[in-house]
Design a protein around this nucleic acid. Structure first.
Lengths: 134, 134
DNA sequence: TTAGTAGTCTACTAATTTGGTAGGATAAAA
DNA sequence: TTTTATCCTACCAAATTAGTAGACTACTAA
C-alpha cells in the first residue's frame, strides 16, 4: 500500500501540474484544495523540491511550481522519493537493492517471481506521469 | 514491500510443497531448515491452516501438510492471507476494497493508474503458484 | 528599512504496525 | 497416562507512519 504521504504528494503534484507555467502556487492553496494537512504538506513539498521535482519561491507572490514538465515526471519517481522501494523484496529492487539477510540470491527461489512482479509494476509506473493523474 | 511474515510464509510453503504427499512435517523442522523463528512460524502456519491452505495433525507423527496441490495455490492468495491487500490503494483493491476517506472515485484521478498497476501485478501473482518457488 | 508574507528546517509526539515471545491448553499416539 | 506436537491468547519492544510545533530565513513592497 501507498502511504498517506505518497498519496498526498501525488495529489499535490496533480494540482500543481494543472497550474504548470502559471507561476508559484502557495502551500495553503494546495492544502485547502486537496484536503491535505497544511504542515504535513509543507514537509512533503520540501522533500519534492530537494529532489528537484519542484522549485519554490519565498515571500509575497511565492509558492511552489514544477521544476520540469509534469509529463516527464513519472509516478514511479515520486513513489521512490516519498515511500522508497517499489519492489516487494529488497533483493530485487533496482534503486534500493539490499541483500536479504536470511537467504542468498542463488538458493532463494522467491526472487524470480518477484522480479517478474517488479517488471510488470514498473512498466506501468515508469510510463505513467503526473500528466496522467491531472 | 512484503512483510517478513509473508516472506517466512512463502519460504515455509516452498519447503512444505517440496514434501507434498510425503506426510506431515513438523514446525521445528521447517523453522530450522528455513531459518525462521519457531514461535513466529507457529502463528504463520496456524493462519495458513485456518485459511485452508494447509492442514495439520497433532501428536506424535504430526505436523503440517498441504491441504491442496501446491501448484493450485497462488502467491497472490498467500500474500492476501498474511499481508492483506496487494493493490497500492484501498479504493482499487478487489478483495479489500475500502473507499478513500479523502477523495471520491469520480474526481480522484489516481485510481485509473493504480488499477492498471494492480492488474499488471496480479497478472503475475495470480498465475504464479507455490510450485514456482519450490 | 521595516512590515508582512511565504517557504525552510529541526525536533517532537501519538498512534499504528511489525516482528516477534511466553506459556498454558488441547488432541493424538504409544 | 506420558509424551509429542499443534492450538490459542495475550503480551511486548522496536520501528514506522502520520502528523504538529515553532523558530528561522528570504523575498517583496510600501
Amino acid at each position: 500500500m501507498l502511504s498517506n504521504k505518497a498519496k498526498y504528494a501525488l495529489k499535490a503534484l496533480s494540482y500543481l501540474g494543472s497550474k504548470y507555467k502559471e507561476g508559484p502556487v502557495q502551500i495553503a492553496e494546495i492544502a485547502e484544495e486537496k484536503n491535505i494537512p497544511l504542515k504535513f504538506l509543507e514537509n512533503i513539498l520540501l522533500e519534492l523540491r530537494k529532489n528537484e521535482v519542484l522549485d519554490s519561491k519565498k515571500g509575497k507572490g511565492g509558492g511552489y511550481y514544477f521544476a520540469q514538465d509534469p509529463k516527464n515526471v513519472s509516478i514511479a519517481k515520486i513513489i521512490r522519493i516519498i515511500d522508497g522501494p517499489i519492489s516487494m523484496l529488497p533483493c530485487v529492487s533496482l534503486y534500493f537493492y539490499k541483500q536479504c539477510d536470511d537467504c542468498d540470491e542463488v538458493s532463494c527461489n522467491l526472487n524470480r517471481v518477484f522480479s517478474e512482479v517488479r517488471d510488470a509494476t514498473l512498466k506501468v509506473l515508469e510510463k505513467r506521469s503526473i500528466k496522467d493523474i491531472m
